[in-house]
Simulated assay, not measured.
Amino acid sequence: MIPGPVEFDPEVMRALGAKTASHVAPEFITVFGRALKRLREVCLAPSAQPFVVSGSGTLAMELAVANLVEPGERALVVNTGYFSDRMALLLTRYGAEVTQVRCAPGEAPDVAAVESALAGGRFKVMTVTHVDTSTGVLAPVEPLVRAAGRHGVLSVVDGVCATAGETFHQDAWGADVYLTASQKAIGVPPGLALLTVSPRAMAAWRARKTPVRSLYADLGEWLPIMEAYEAGRPSYFATPAVNLVCALDVSLGQILREGMEARFTRHRRMAKAFRAAWRALGLKTLPVSESVTAHTLSALYYPEGVDAGVIARVREQGVVLAGGLHPELKTRYFRVGHMNVVGPGDVLASVGAVERALVAAGHRSEPGVAVAAAQAELLRAG
């Protein structure tokens, strides 16, 4: 129950463990092409160009930055935590002049403050982390993306801890790049960087005055490959992660069979059950309000008198949690992932393990109160 890698469906794992085909075999070309089409559907981005590249979520971030920003151009980072800091670092490495709209850990920057910065900044791009894995903060992505559009600024949304779990409508909202990785709510083991890029962002890339500095991150190398596979033709730049792409195709198919709105609703329902349990235990969340709290993970302060040893106590009961990540707070909180295939049974098992571990660590609560609260919420939502 960490915020990635998550639990994976057995059918996805069977695809990962199947005999590896040639990357130019007709059967693989069909699978890859179908996965690209499905990625558009999952991101609700029918007009976008999808990219599936071997690498981590950080590579997905770098693909966006490397192709949209040239040295000396200005970028605005809406900063909600650790991975917003990483985006700022990437932009700086590629020569951008970076301005950040910051807030305290657990908060999200005010949309009006971001719009004010956009109005006076002459920015090329604005970046925002949909859900920051370090803090569990859910940014107000829709109004931020729409604000960027009003000011003619390209919007790049980091959806690594959000895609296929948090509500997102790329085309309808006007987001230019939605990037993610395979190992979270997309439901595939680590190793794939995924992007859907709008026609406006592709036009901006084509209008570059300087070459992309990284060969591997250059969309110019990858675009012919993506176009060829989607058209059913073999092509080559670098060998794809064949089995991971096959697993991706299976998982995207499962996601679409569930339906995007149904999937978003399920993630909200599981999150509400977890939150009811945390309230019953008297645990304080790192996000400062419900409106900025993610549905894909919980970030929770340790109660007084309890430290990180509680994570080991939970693990002894068969549930794996994550410690803190934000550098200012990492020893003060822990994280519980709840995305992809998580259902009511996972909620109750995890909550029970946390409750028992906290009691063993000296935290005082009424026996069974957290499980009862989660169960009541699940029954109400169901």
Score class of each variant (00 low, 15 high):
residue 163 T to M: 11
residue 133 T to K: 14
residue 13 M to H: 02
residue 326 H to E: 10
residue 118 L to V: 13
residue 55 G to K: 14
residue 149 G to F: 05
residue 97 E to G: 01
residue 249 D to R: 01
residue 202 M to V: 04
residue 216 Y to T: 00
residue 241 A to M: 08
residue 237 F to D: 05
residue 64 A to Q: 07
residue 4 G to N: 13
residue 124 K to F: 15
residue 63 L to F: 14
residue 75 A to F: 04
residue 311 I to N: 12
residue 90 L to P: 02
residue 350 S to M: 06
residue 61 M to S: 04
residue 152 G to H: 14
residue 244 L to A: 07
residue 286 L to V: 14
residue 202 M to S: 01
residue 215 L to K: 00
residue 232 G to I: 10
residue 204 A to H: 12
residue 367 P to S: 06
residue 273 A to H: 08
residue 4 G to Q: 14
residue 218 D to P: 03
residue 91 L to V: 04
residue 74 R to N: 12
residue 169 H to N: 07
residue 66 A to F: 09
residue 356 R to K: 07
residue 333 Y to V: 15
residue 287 P to C: 07
residue 106 G to N: 10
residue 64 A to V: 03
residue 250 V to R: 01
residue 220 G to R: 01
residue 20 T to Q: 08
residue 246 C to W: 00
residue 66 A to C: 14
residue 125 V to H: 01
residue 329 L to W: 08
residue 306 V to Q: 03
residue 102 R to T: 13
residue 221 E to C: 08
residue 375 Q to Y: 08
residue 364 R to W: 11
residue 185 A to T: 04
residue 21 A to C: 06
residue 352 G to C: 14
residue 64 A to R: 02
residue 127 T to R: 01
residue 38 R to W: 06
residue 19 K to E: 06
residue 104 A to F: 07
residue 202 M to T: 02
residue 53 V to C: 13
residue 380 R to D: 04
residue 28 F to M: 05
residue 302 Y to V: 11
residue 366 E to Y: 02
residue 30 T to H: 02
residue 165 G to R: 07
residue 99 T to I: 12
residue 127 T to N: 03
residue 330 K to L: 10
residue 198 S to L: 02
residue 10 P to T: 08
residue 171 D to W: 05
residue 367 P to K: 09
residue 8 F to E: 00
residue 91 L to P: 02
residue 139 A to I: 11
residue 76 L to M: 14
residue 346 D to S: 15
residue 194 L to N: 04
residue 382 G to M: 12
residue 256 L to E: 07
residue 243 N to A: 04
residue 213 R to N: 02
residue 196 T to K: 02
residue 22 S to N: 06
residue 272 K to C: 01
residue 22 S to I: 06
residue 198 S to D: 03
residue 342 V to Y: 00
residue 322 A to V: 15
residue 43 C to N: 05
residue 209 K to T: 13
residue 136 G to V: 14
residue 12 V to I: 08
residue 375 Q to A: 12
residue 110 D to R: 15
residue 115 E to T: 12
residue 369 V to P: 09
residue 218 D to Y: 00
residue 370 A to D: 13
residue 43 C to A: 06
residue 57 G to M: 09
residue 285 T to G: 05
residue 106 G to F: 03
residue 376 A to D: 05
residue 61 M to R: 07
residue 192 L to Y: 14
residue 96 A to T: 03
residue 274 F to S: 04
residue 94 Y to D: 02
residue 364 R to G: 03
residue 7 E to H: 13
residue 37 K to A: 03
residue 373 A to V: 09
residue 57 G to L: 08
residue 352 G to S: 15
residue 371 V to P: 01
residue 8 F to V: 00
residue 169 H to E: 11
residue 1 M to K: 08
residue 65 V to A: 10
residue 106 G to W: 04
residue 233 R to C: 09
residue 151 H to K: 11
residue 187 G to Q: 08
residue 230 E to V: 08
residue 95 G to C: 04
